[in-house]
Amino acid sequence: MNIKRQEIEKLATLARIAIDESTIAEVTERLGSVLELVDQLQAADTSGVEAISHPMQGTQRLREDEVTELNQRQALQAIAPDTEEGLFLVPKVIE
């Protein structure tokens, strides 16, 4: 399966991973190889087969609506890259 360079660039944007110009050919080739592998799926006859997203059958357990998590800001922000006034800081977001 051939994947085009532009497609890789689009994927990289969606996944927010900067790809260096010098490696893009290599990335494209290796990704193409993996997609060739997964393309073997197309040969499978799956007509009428129900897709499953969990290996086990089961239903969601529900939690009681009770506060169990108290303020842990100090501990949680101690490992944050950049905080001020209790806020996580990022480069200014432009909407």
Partner: peptide, 29 residues
């Protein structure tokens, strides 16, 4: 990075059914 890109590809518009949908059916098989 490669696996993130592959996963992104398999879920993206136009490819979801052919890859992700199909794989989940094969999983059933």
């Amino acid at each position: 990075q490669r696996r993130i890109l592959i996963g992104t590809y398999c879920l993206s518009a136009g490819y979801y059914q052919a890859y992700y949908g199909k794989a989940q059916q094969v999983r059933q098989l």
